[in-house]
Nucleic acid binder design. Structure first.
Lengths: 192, 192
DNA sequence: CCCAATCGACAACGCACGTTTCACTTCGGC
DNA sequence: GCCGAAGTGAAACGTGCGTTGTCGATTGGG
């Protein structure tokens, strides 16, 4: 019933590269199959549907993103720098793969509006994981206000990713500057 | 060659409501036609293609958004309040129409990745108009730094809209707070 | 009142895409 | 070397959708 790991990897590689750079709806299953060098039957034996393939690709990307993020946080110094390291991770992640011109989860959320429970669940899981990790880092910078700070930073990061959707070459400098202002405002004036 | 104005309006009403709430690709032309109470032939006599209909709906929405935004700016007091009025306008715009649960232009950008010149042009035009109007308002708050401030606020607004994509009921409070911090940081420390 | 423009109803075409099936071949552990 | 699992290649199906065409009814300005 299963499929060989190398085959599965090739399929997910192709799915990631095509779905998340050209768009999910705009990429036919045939294109993924051709890119992976796999037959139609093989794909449908490994994944029940296109949607399942999309969800699997999203989940694998989520795990890869966490690894990149963790590495950037570990490389940072102060608590504030560890919090801002998410922008380094964003840059690293984009540099590593062509398909990360913009956020796959943002794109998936925009394409699958109210439908597709499997994909929607992956998007929700990503957002939640993101928020929780931000809160953990924010607690070291602004104890007691980590919820507020994390929510604000989540908005800044989403804004950066949304800007990238229109202009994929956009640097993270503006986002970093905004994030810095937010951290300063919350950390320096905790009574605000 | 033309079409009666009332017919065109009904078509654009239906297009806006369906395309921008359910998604463009997920909405067949038939659905728009049915909703507008119009025949297939009539629609294709007025618009050469689905893409043209989408572009026309985007352009009309752009104009409506500008009206809402202007009204909110005029209702505001100080220069800083006039700059922050964009969030009031965002709330007003969403309250006025169901289809404004999230940003139509953000959604269109996500769905039409590299293709569709007509739609892409409308998205670019919206982003540019947005930036220019923000710069004009920002010039009164932080003279000489209006480009920097406008770019930051554009990011904050995009972030708010992206968050709404995942949770359409999200209020603009967080975005407003972040925007306030950005304005304070740039206006109070112009040498930064 | 008339005529031309506009519109509605409906059928049809063509195509692209997701999915299934089938007959056959290759791979890999026992 | 055997045998089941995994993969190939190609064809086919069903369907949904964008688009076109026809034709009779409706409309509205001169």
């Amino acid at each position: 019933m299963g499929m060989r790991e190398s085959t599965r990897d090739r399929m997910l590689d192709a799915a990631e590269e095509l779905f998340f750079s050209r768009g999910i709806a705009a990429t036919p299953v045939d294109a993924v199959i051709a890119r992976a060098g796999v037959s139609t039957a093989t794909m449908y034996r490994g994944f029940p549907s296109k949607e399942a393939l999309v969800a699997a690709a999203l989940e694998r990307r989520e795990r890869a993103w966490i690894v990149t993020w963790d590495a950037a946080v570990d490389a940072a110094g102060s608590e504030a720098e560890r919090l801002l390291a998410v922008f380094d991770a964003l840059d690293d992640f984009r540099a590593e793969r062509d398909s990360a011109r913009w956020c796959a989860f943002l794109g998936a959320a925009a394409e699958h509006v109210d439908a597709d429970e499997e994909v929607a669940a992956a998007v929700r899981a990503d957002t939640e994981a993101f928020r929780i990790r931000l809160e953990r880092l924010a607690a070291d910078v602004a104890p007691g206000l980590e919820h507020e700070l994390a929510e604000s930073l989540l908005l800044v990061i989403s804004g950066h990713l949304a800007m990238r959707l229109r202009d994929p070459s956009q640097s993270s400098a503006t986002a970093r500057r905004v994030a810095h202002a937010v951290i300063a405002a919350i950390a320096q004036a905790p009574a605000l």
